[in-house]
Design a protein around this nucleic acid. Structure first.
Lengths: 241, 241
DNA sequence: CAAAAGCCTGCGGGTTCCCGCAAGCGCTTT
DNA sequence: AAAGCGCTTGCGGGAACCCGCAGGCTTTTG
């Protein structure tokens, strides 16, 4: 068996190296990559079917890398090993996992035991392993309570990018009013109308800008998600003269 | 000599531990803390004058912790050891360093040699050590080219938080129009008016929201800065019935 | 000292946003 | 079949934003 490690922090990389060889005696070769870019290349070159990968790397983040890897070989087994359980990450991952594929999502803060167990479960047993905290997030996310539908999430990204209602309606093929309706729902779910005191004078906020900040503070959005969305936006804008 | 290490990642923490004891044979005791909160407490308890600390930690970030530590003992020597050279961090640090205090800012990606050298320079020689990349950022930041004055930066934070022009004017003691003038300058410096093609039809962006995103993408703002600003805002809002 | 440059301010109007009201459509429930 | 729910759309108005124009104030410069 061959395993590919994709992780930009050298300390974490060598730690992973140890853990993998300890947990998987049947593993004969371990490749290492320092970022997503390099990870894609090596996965392609060696055809490795077992990958453990960090999200959040400099050159190209884990989600992007995983997407292209899975596009080429949907049966690749990937264990995401991340510092955070931001909703933005969880959502990003579950959006790209091919159906039926085995994958895992464990936090860097979990014990070595759990990490090793996850390695074996995914790579040998072909079973999904999602850390409890992540799982909790996931369910809250897809539940109704303050959960965002995909279309709402899309629009949230759009206003985060600074797009106009009109342009959003154009991009998402909706009427202007529908976009604004979605925004109402978003404002509601983010509870952006708060005015701190018991005073009922309306909120001192620009709801549109406020929504983005609140979303960031709640880890619904993060830098990686923004970056990705921005790239897509640029692409779209070139497309429409 | 006593040294306090404040770092939430256990791998990095033990790495630092090794490096410190290797670089500073005169160091007799090494304390460790897992986050800013704990770091403050231990610094106070042991009265350690030598600290090496991560920025970006869960419970309480490094900048906040450093601020309260320096407030109590301005002669404390602190080496910031961070993953990133975001302008938001650099600005945050240089805003709180007491004048005359020795401090350092080195990236986690630098070599062990440089790290050891920095440790000795700051703790023994009482000299400031700033990584080149960070230094570069710092100068670009305070130069005129696309550099932000402190007052502009303040307003940028305010719109990032989602405040209304009117409320900003109230908070910063300016007229409405002055706030909007500042915004004009900010929009200019962030080059937010771009319309991708050579077409001169005006930008498809809500400038206010767009400015925030561009600032984030340029690392002018980041999560930590937002979080801190939000806390200050909440405080201010309670103050003004 | 006068001119220039910079910041703060008011005014006004064009645009965009925020959102209540209401009507139309498809789907489920009873 | 009728009623109910959710999603979409149009209309309209009040508020907030973006910004050119222009006058006052302070600081800098020749």
């Amino acid at each position: 068996m061959e395993v590919l490690i994709v992780e930009d922090d050298p300390l974490h990389r060598s730690f992973l190296q140890e853990q993998v060889s300890a947990a998987l005696p049947e593993c004969c070769t371990i490749y290492e990559a320092e970022n997503g870019q390099q990870g894609e290349t090596m996965a392609r070159a060696h055809g490795t079917a077992h990958i453990v990968m960090d999200l959040q790397m400099n050159a190209r983040n884990g989600i992007e890398a995983a997407r292209t890897i899975w596009r080429e070989r949907p049966d690749t087994r990937i264990l995401f090993w991340s510092n955070y359980a931001d909703e933005a990450y969880v959502r990003g991952v579950s959006r790209i996992v091919p159906n039926g594929a085995a994958y895992g999502y464990v936090l860097k803060s979990t014990s070595e035991e759990r990490l090793k167990l996850a390695l074996r479960s995914i790579f040998i047993e072909n079973q999904c392993v999602i850390d409890n905290e992540v799982r909790g997030m996931q369910q809250r996310s897809f539940a109704q309570t303050s959960g965002f539908s995909d279309s709402e999430y899309e629009i949230l990204m759009d206003i985060a990018l600074g797009m106009t209602d009109r342009v959003i309606s154009e991009r998402r093929h909706l009427s202007l009013r529908s976009v604004q309706n979605r925004l109402q729902q978003i404002y509601g779910k983010l509870d952006v109308h708060q005015s701190v005191g018991s005073q009922r004078e309306d909120s001192p906020f620009n709801l549109r800008a406020r929504a983005v900040t609140v979303a960031m503070l709640r880890k619904l959005l993060n830098y990686g998600a923004l970056e990705k969305a921005e790239a897509e936006l640029q692409h779209w804008m070139r497309g429409r003269l």
